[in-house]
Amino acid sequence: MNENINQNKINEIANTPVVSQEISHESTLYAEPIGHIGSMQITNSLFTTWIVVIIVLILTLIIKIKAKLIPKGIQNVFEVLVEGAMDLADQVTGSKKITAKVFPLAFSIFIFVLISNWLGILPLGGFGLVETTEHGRAFIPFIRSGTADINTTLSLGIMSVIGANIFGILSIGLWKMFNKYVNLKAFGEIVTKVRKEPAILISAPIMFFVGILELVGEFAKIASLSFRLFGNVFAGEVLLMSMSAILAYGLPIPFMGLELFVGFIQAFIFSILTLVYFTIAAQDHDEHEEDEGKHVKEVLV
């Protein structure tokens, strides 16, 4: 009996795949799970985003408590940042009214993306878990830039584009916004204008098709926003890891500087594009075309 048991154990050990004792750390396209809450996976990117929330909470509380009529320290920095950003946003939107409405969102996106990007560069990647997988023992860091996970950037992109469309509906109305994508108005104009302008028989279907393209364009916006940010930040992390693998001491430093710059630029691009999408959504195409028509006539006269 005992011999049989021992034989089974020997067989079990023999059948068990050989696990390498070396701990590997590979960059994955996805954020690695570091825990669970119920059925929900907690990834290292999500954990980093929680840290971002805590950092923002601390900073904003300090600003709120220390805010005085005569500014000092962090309030000075924040005021300079806000004023500069508002001037820039004014230049992008071309309207103080739109800026006043959209700026808080764009600014929040900028801060969120910036801190997320920069947290990934911090040399805290040494803290993490060692998990045994079928390929061996793998190291999973606790900190991974929030934006180095497509789920985060996709979430931001979807919010930005849906937000822009809601803003468009509130600014120009549901019917006009609907006609941007499903141009029923163009078909209606065939009936009313066909005698005066027979060419409308050709232009109206084209306009309808352009509307459909606009709709497709909205999905393209989500994809471009989310993949641009994800691609840049993920590539940065891979670059830093590669440099560390070549020479851990010193070599990654210039690339860290580069990644700080890339992190800032990506946050800036994301927020500026959000501003642009909101501004475009708030513009009435018909009015814009009429204005352009008037301008052309004026130039011709």
Binding site: A31, M40, Q41, T43, S45, L46, T49, W50, V52, V53, V56, L57, L59, T60, L61, I63, K64, A67, Q75, F78, E79, V82, F103, P104, L105, F107, S108, I109, I111, F112, G146, D149, N151, T152, L154, S155, L156, I158, M159
Partner: peptide
Amino acid sequence: IIIAQAINFGLIFLLIYFFALKPI
């Protein structure tokens, strides 16, 4: 995770808007 990140961003937006931008 997409929804969780949206909630995180929503929190950040609220914090920045009510604790920083509005008072400043």
